[in-house]
């Protein structure tokens, strides 16, 4: 648990640094600080607001995810769930607020830096590389582990060969783990939807992330497929020990998988707590369960 200790210190440092937010990022009225887990928070968002032109996608979102937990983000369509995920992994830069991961301030530093810090993700509309086979997609998930340069790779020098072999072994393990072995050499675009979702999960896991973001991993799946994928996510957590933040509409899956639920509506956080607490929250019932179910 040495890691956790040092991260606390780093988080504290990053929070202190944040006092010097440039004026153009500061909002007119300073918001009250959102609840922050003082214990083992891996991911902390503070006062995140995001707008596209005049449309507010997120208003003052703050929450923290503990190391090792599964946090579900739920809410009606258009509530800002995907935008929130895109802020976390640096695809969107929020107009205000901060994203702290392992004590690092990742706000607006781009997807690549988020990946380097240990965040991997899947996408709502599958974003696989159609020109690559299943196994090559997964191998690409290990891009960050490659150090060999252009000439080493072209000439097949030892380091390049070793890295390639390692990436391939890891991909084969993941294919096996997610029962994709039979499809290793298939073109990824030719696979059925459910399998593509699983390949995307394998690609994200190949990076060995500390935090895995899943954007509707089970959308459009049958009950059986959902069960399979839920099991796979739980097994992956048990095996790799990462923290998961997922967006999901199926409330049964959410209750089953998550330790912590965040409810968004119209870009605002309306509930944040354990599954039991959220389920009984009258605002949630009104905004989400009451409206949709």
């Amino acid at each position: 648990m040495m890691m956790v200790m040092s991260e606390q210190i780093a988080t504290a440092w990053a929070l202190e640094q944040a006092g010097v937010t440039p004026a153009f990022l500061r909002r007119e009225e300073e918001e009250a600080a959102p609840p922050v887990y003082r214990g083992d928070a891996l991911l902390v968002l503070q006062g995140v607001s995001l707008a596209f032109g005049g449309v507010r996608a997120l208003s003052d979102i703050g929450f923290a995810a503990r190391e090792g937990e599964t946090l579900a983000i739920i809410g009606p369509n258009g509530a800002g769930k995907s935008s929130l995920l895109n802020v976390i992994n640096g695809i969107y830069r929020p107009q205000s607020g901060r994203v702290l991961f392992r004590g690092l301030d990742l706000t607006g530093r781009g997807a690549r830096n988020a990946a380097r810090a240990g965040i991997a993700r899947t996408f709502q509309n599958i974003a696989l590389f159609k020109g690559l086979s299943v196994i090559d997609n997964i191998v690409t998930g290990r891009s960050l582990a490659h150090r060999a340069g252009l000439f080493e790779q072209i000439l097949g020098l030892p380091r390049a060969r070793r890295e390639e072999a390692e990436a391939r072994e890891e991909a084969l393990r993941l294919l096996d783990f997610l029962q994709l072995g039979a499809f290793a050499e298939r073109q990824v675009g030719a696979l059925p939807y459910g399998l593509q979702k699983r390949v995307e999960l394998a690609r994200a896991l190949a990076a060995r992330p500390r935090l895995l973001l899943l954007d509707e991993p089970m959308a459009g799946m049958s009950a059986g497929e959902k069960q399979d994928l839920s099991d796979a996510i739980l097994a992956a957590k048990a095996r790799f020990g990462m923290t998961v933040v997922l967006i999901e509409h199926d409330i049964g899956v959410v209750m089953n998988l998550s330790d912590h639920i965040l409810v968004l509506d119209y870009g605002q956080k309306i509930a944040d707590g354990t599954p039991d607490a959220v389920r009984d929250d009258p605002r949630v019932i009104e905004a989400y369960l009451g409206a949709g179910h």
Binding site: A111, G131, L132, T140
Partner: peptide
């Protein structure tokens, strides 16, 4: 094929 996914992989 997918530049956003590529950068999300680092």
């Amino acid at each position: 094929d997918r530049d956003v996914a590529a950068s999300s992989l680092g």
